[in-house]
Nucleic acid binder design. Structure first.
Length: 208
DNA sequence: CTCCCGATAT
DNA sequence: ATATCAGGAG
């Protein structure tokens, strides 16, 4: 696939310096925001965290939180009972096993409840300046349509992309893919006619 | 594989 | 009515 570099360049020229849509000001805030973002729009997460982060400023604040209160505070993000339980346990584990600080390795991050490979990669790329590919629903859909990936399994797709994309551009390409997935290569009614990758795309869109 | 959860778009 | 939304756990 020599198309990969071309696609990377085209997308990065459109989204020159892509940023994470989640609002945060430190590693802990990004970790919590990313856990909350599971199957939820970033807009709703930002609404919730705007108030949440005023109250919860350290791992200990989450560790000692009242679960009932916390559930209502994060309710709009959905799956709130699971997320509340996981985030509070996450705070406890950060205190007990990581001296209250968010770890900066994949192995440690994925030990935390509610943190899978995708969430860990968001944190690694977002605040620890690592070159990573966090495969979420957008990345999965867009790269499969483009022919850059051929799998519905996120960890397989992650490896396929890491193998094809220039190492130094992984994180920015990751964010550009998400923006492209949200604005153009949408799950429902994609805007193929206005897509800058139309020529490199192998996806036969007969619907629109 | 199912479940967790509810708002929004079509 | 149905699909989808920065997924992860059991």
């Amino acid at each position: 696939m020599s198309d990969a570099w071309k696609i990377v360049d085209l997308l990065l020229s459109k989204y020159s310096h892509p940023k994470i849509a989640l609002i945060f000001s430190n590693p802990l805030e990004l970790l919590i925001a990313t856990i909350l973002s599971a199957r939820c729009t970033d807009i709703k997460v930002n609404e919730v965290t705007k108030n949440l982060f005023k109250k919860y400023k350290s791992a200990k604040d989450y560790a000692v939180a009242d679960i009932r209160v916390f559930e209502t505070e994060i309710k709009p993000t959905g799956f709130y009972k699971n997320k509340a339980k996981m985030i509070i346990e996450c705070g406890r584990m950060l205190i007990n096993d990581f001296k209250g600080k968010v770890p900066d390795t994949m192995e440690s991050l994925t030990l935390l409840p509610g943190v899978g490979r995708k969430t860990a990669n968001v944190v690694l790329g977002g605040v620890f300046n690592k070159q990573v590919m966090a495969v979420d629903t957008h990345v999965l859909r867009v790269t499969n349509r483009l022919g850059l990936a051929n799998s519905q399994k996120p960890d397989i797709v992650e490896r396929e992309l890491v193998d094809q994309v220039p190492a130094g551009k992984l994180t920015s390409f990751n964010l550009a893919l998400i923006l492209h997935g949200r604005e153009t290569c949408k799950a429902v009614k994609p805007k193929c006619p206005e897509c800058i990758l139309l020529k490199q795309c192998s996806w036969p869109d007969k619907t629109s």
